[in-house]
Write a protein that binds this DNA or RNA. Sequence first.
RNA 1: GCGCUCGUAGCUCAGUAGGAUAGAGCGGUUGCCUCCUAAGCAAUAGGUCGGGGGUUCGAUUCCCUCCGAGCGCGCCA
Length: 593
Amino acid sequence: MIGHIQELIENALEHLQAKGEFNLDQTPTINIERTRSKDHGDYASNVAMMLAKPLKMNPRAIAEKIIAELTDTSHVSKVEIAGPGFINFYLTDACRLQVIKKILKQKHDFGNQELGAEHKITVEFVSANPTGPLHVGHGRGAAFGSSLCNVLKKVGYDVHAEYYVNDHGRQMDILAMSVWLRYLELCGEQITFPVNGYKGEYIVDIARKVRQKFGDDFRHGQVEVFAQVSPDETEGGDKELHVDDLVLNAKDILGKGYAKIFKIALKTILTGIEDDLEEFAVFYDEWFSEKSLHEGDTIERALAILEKGGHLYKKDGALWFNATHFGDEKDRVVMRENGLKTYFASDVAYLLNKFERGFEKSVYVFGADHHGYIPRLKAATKALGFDADKIEILLVQFAHLFKGGEKLKMSTRSGEFVTLRELVDEVGCDAARFFYVMRSHEQHLDFDMDLAKSQSNDNPVYYIQYAHARICSIIRKLEEQNMTHNIEIGHVSLELLVEEQEHDLIKALSQYPEVVEKAAVNFSVHSIANYLRELAQLFHSYYNAHQVQIDNENLRNARLNLCLATRYVLADGLALLGSSAPQEMRAEDKPEL
RNA sequence: GCGCUCGUAGCUCAGUAGGAUAGAGCGGUUGCCUCCUAAGCAAUAGGUCGGGGGUUCGAUUCCCUCCGAGCGCGCCA
C-alpha cells in the first residue's frame, strides 16, 4: 500500500515537472508513513515540506498542486492537506477490509516476507562457557537470540542458529580439576578446596557420577595431589597460580584418566544446558565446538591469511595481530610467548569458518560486557578479506535481578546464582520468554524475581494470551447457541464492520507485516511484544463493547472472520517470541496472590 | 584517564533512518459481571523527554558540551 501511494506521488511529480510547474534537479525520495493519529488518515507524506526549499514555494501550495495531479485513486477515498503541509491519505473501506480475507487465506503465513531472499544467515547466541548451568543472566540472550531467529526466518532468511561451545582452554581444565577434587572428597580424602575452583553443588553431582562409573580408580592421596603446588590465596599465595598448579598435577597424576573426567564433566554440563534451553523453547541448528577448530587446520589457515596480508608481527616472543590498522584501539595477541593460541585466535578461525560455510551474514548476540570485542572482530573480518558489514554484533544489555529488593550478584565460580531452570520452573516459559524480550535489547532490564514469581498475572503475556483464548472460546461456544461460522458469508458481509473498535482492530491487523519487517531490519524483537499488547488491547475493548454471538447471520459471520484473523496474528506473534497461544485460560489456574 | 552504552510520568519502559497534541503497563482516584472467561473494560490525575548550546520550516530524535548511571580497557577465557 505504501508503494502504491508512493507511485501516485511520483507520477504526480513527473507530470508537474513535464508541465514545467516544478523545476527539480532530481526526484526526491518520497517518504510515506503510517499516521499516528487516525485524525490524519491512514497514510501521510511530508513530500511537500521536503520540496519547499528547492522549489522556494509554500509547502501547502506544493501539496495542492500534487493532489491535483493524483491519477489512479481507486484505493483512496480522501486526500487532504493538513498542518504545515502534510498530505494525508484515507483508504477506501473495501481496501481496508481486504486484510481480513488475506489473513484467513494465508493464516500463519500472514506477515511472511521475502526480504531475506533466502540468504543464509547465522545467529550465534548464549555461547556461555560450559563450566556450569545457565543462570538467569544468560536468559536474556537466549530469549532474544531465539526470537530474533524466528523473526528473521519470518522475513525470508535461511537462518542457522549456533551455540559456540568453549570446550577448550584453561577454564575447562579448572572445571575438570574441580570435579576431581570433589571426587576425592567423596572418596574420603581431606581436601582444601581452592578459592578459584568451581564451587557449585553441580560439581559434586558430577563427581558422584564419576565415582559411580569408575569407583576409586582416580583416588590419590592428598599429599600427592597437592605436591609442589604454590599456596592458595588463603595462605598468602596467588589463587590463579594455585589452580594452574593443581591442573598440572591432575594431568600428571591421572594420565588418560584426566580426559575421562574432563569428558564426563563437559558432557554432563552441556547436556544440562541443552535441556535447559529446550525447556526454554530455544533450539539450535548447531553446537559448534571450539576444540574442533584446534583439532582441524582452521586456526592455522586463518593465521596464514593474516600473515599473507602482512597483518601479523612478532613482539616479545608473542605473535600479534595488527588490529589497530583496522580501527581497533590496540593490537591483539594471537599466539602467546608459551606457544599457546589465544582465545582471540579461535575467534578469528571461527569467523573464517562461518564465511567458508557461505553465510551471507553472521550475527553475534553478545552480552554488553563484550562490547570491547566489536572493533577487534570487525578488524579481523577486514583482515581476512571480507566486508565488515557481513558481521553484525548486537549487544544485549544486562538484566539486573532483584530479589527481596536486593540486587543479586551472579558468579558461576562461587556457585551463587539463580539458574535459568529455576526461573522457568517458577515463572513458566511463556512469561519468562516474554519478560526478557519485552524491552529493547539495548536497554538495561530490571528483572524483579519476586514480581515475576508471585504476581505473574501482571505479566503482559497473560493479557495477550487471554485475548487469544477469548477468541477460541467464542468459536468453541457457538454450537451451544446453535450458531455456525461461515467464512464465505462473513467475507461478503465485511462492510457491516462499521464500529470504531472494528476499524481500529482491522487497521492494527494490517500493520502486522510492517511490524515484522521493522523488527527484522532493526533487530528490535521487543517491538513485536509491544505490537501484540496493542492488538490484544484493541481486541479486549472490542470484546467488551460488542457481542459476536448474535442472531444477525451476516454481521455475526463478519465479526467471526475478524476475530479469527485476530487470533491468527496473535498466535503467530506469540510464536515468534517463543510463547504459546493457549486455547483457554482457566481462572483456577490463576496463581494465588 | 581513554572508550562503548544509556538518561522520557511516582516506578518499569515504548516512541526517534527529524514531523502534527510525547504513549503504555504498574501504582493512585472513580465506575462496569441476570450478557461470548472481570487474567477483562470504561473514565480520570500525573511530563522542563537529565541541563545548556547548535543545525533546521520543524529536534525527545542529529551535532557539541556539561552532569549522572552502567560496562569495558590482560601474552584471562
